[in-house]
Structures are given as structure tokens and as C-alpha cells.
């Protein structure tokens, strides 16, 4: 039953789709939180890739799984800092629209 066998390619396509969604969100959203969601999507695509490669492609070891854990930590740390910065921006500008900031240009 070849249709039911889920292999590496399915995961890679899923990851590529999530990556594309993330890139699309990052490039179209004007809201800082929206962009952060795009970043999270890309990082999740990274995780899918890592874990799928680890399971199907790489013989021995579990570098991919460990990497995925680290990527989750990176994502969490980045979200914490980014949300704090968004709060700070909101306090100063009353908006988190990345286009609205206009004090810096040139």
C-alpha cells in the first residue's frame, strides 16, 4: 500500500510548506506579532526537518532530535525578548505596526 506509507518526502514537503507559509507571513504582515508568528512557523519547519532527517536519513545518533530541542529553546528565548521589545514599542508609540515607526530614517 504505497499510498499509506509516510516517508521522508512527506515530512520534507510538509516542512517546506510550513516554511513557505512562514516566509509569506513574515513578508506580508505589518504587525510585529504577526511577523513573530511567521518566525515561529519557520522554526517549526526547521524542527520538522531536523526530526524527519534524523528518523529517515541519518544513520546512528540523534543529532537531529537534540537540535530540534535546541531550536525550541532558541524559539522560546527569541519570543520572550521579541515580545518584551514589542511591549516597549507599544508603550512608546501606541502601536506595534512595524511600518509606523518613523523616527529613524535616512
Amino acid at each position: 500500500m504505497p499510498l499509506l506509507e509516510i516517508g521522508l518526502m512527506h515530512y520534507l514537503i510538509l516542512a517546506a510548506a510550513v516554511f513557505s507559509c512562514g516566509v509569506f507571513v513574515m513578508s506580508t504582515k505589518r504587525n510585529a506579532i504577526g511577523i513573530l508568528i511567521g518566525i515561529e512557523l519557520v522554526l517549526n519547519a526547521v524542527n520538522i526537518n531536523f526530526v524527519a532527517f534524523d528518523r529517515y536519513q541519518v544513520v546512528g545518533g540523534c543529532d537531529g532530535q537534540i537540535s530540534a530541542v535546541f531550536v525550541i529553546v532558541i524559539a522560546a528565548a527569541e519570543a520572550a525578548v521579541a515580545v518584551a521589545i514589542c511591549m516597549n514599542l507599544y508603550k512608546n508609540l501606541n502601536t506595534i505596526d512595524v511600518d509606523r515607526g518613523d523616527s529613524l530614517h535616512g
Partner: peptide, 27 residues
Amino acid sequence: AEASLKYVVFGGISAAIMLYGISLLYG
């Protein structure tokens, strides 16, 4: 506030895309 937002947005995007490249290299 604006500077740090721009930094974190651009930095986050480039770091995420870099990690995607790394995951492909790993694969």
C-alpha cells in the same frame, strides 16, 4: 524602541532562515 524592534524582527527572520538552511545541510 523602534531600533530594537527593527533589530529583533530582521534578526529573528534571518536566524530562522539560517536554521532552515542548517536543517537542510544536516539532511
